[in-house]
Design a protein around this nucleic acid. Structure first.
Lengths: 145, 145
DNA sequence: CGATATAGACAGATAATCTGTCTATCTGTC
DNA sequence: GACAGATAGACAGATTATCTGTCTATATCG
């Protein structure tokens, strides 16, 4: 390895992807804390991203987020304690409970969208909207393959 | 929020960045496991990325990785148990110890570089080298600002 | 020499995941 | 209608990756 380290010649793509990702997260979840939701953490996005307006089953949320039911149950439990979601029995299936956003949860959902858009607008301001659109296009392309 | 969820209209940039990042990580650390290093986890990259050939201080590694000394000590401890790094007193400073890659650690370092390059080559094969270069360029630009 | 800063070890906490096991409930087949 | 097997999700416990706070040893500066 001589005198070099991994990042000396050329940063790995993983490194380059992680940096803006973590910055976005800091901005969005910092903003959420500033808006009065300090107990919402990045992991909770797994819930907010997929939850349906009528309520979602724990199992469905876990599957959509690509994690175990147990892990999702842990996240939902935290959100329920904070009053962001409430669970109710599923009238269609006695085994299941439906997890649904409360009014407070919907405010977080709105804030998440607004803060994401703001963070993205800041990037557009820095590198130009064309450059950002290009980035989006390549990442969408990558997501498909 | 009507019938939609966050990802319905337009995926957040954070979501788009996370996907390829996690895929890369799976590929690289899966490949590392296949090459006989199953105990090297993504978090260990914080050590491999910055460690100097002559050895690095724990404090320096922690600072470069942007984490606490305690967290870095935990990572280094795991690597030392696996025989990837060894620590020795710093002759220049009696308080300090130098963390250095062993021969086995250098093999991991080499594998990390090779696997990262391979993963990147697979992306180039999928979207074209020009597209990948564009992605890199935008991400480098983002990293500066 | 003494004050202060630094290196890093130790103790303990927390977040975010996992596996494994268990009960309740549903559904399809005989 | 009963029973077998699948599914929903709760409970127990473990692991990984981080943190804060405190402590000792050593260095350095005035």
């Amino acid at each position: 390895m001589s005198e070099r380290n991994i990042t000396a010649d050329r940063r790995t793509l993983g490194f380059l992807l992680r940096q803006p990702y973590e910055r976005l997260q800091r901005e969005v979840y910092g903003g959420l804390a500033a808006r009065g939701f300090p107990d919402i953490r990045p992991a909770h996005s797994a819930v907010f991203r997929h939850i349906a307006a009528r309520g979602s089953r724990l199992t469905a949320l876990a599957e959509q987020a690509g994690m175990t039911k147990q892990s999702m149950a842990y996240l939902v439990e935290g959100l329920a304690e904070g009053g962001y979601v409430a669970t109710a029995p599923d009238p269609q299936d006695g085994r299941a409970r439906l997890v649904k956003l409360t009014a407070r949860g919907r405010r977080v959902w709105d804030a998440l969208i607004a803060l994401s858009a703001e963070a993205e607008a800041r990037i557009a301001a820095r590198v130009g909207p064309a450059r950002l659109a290009e980035l989006r296009a390549i990442l969408e392309e990558l997501a498909e393959g």
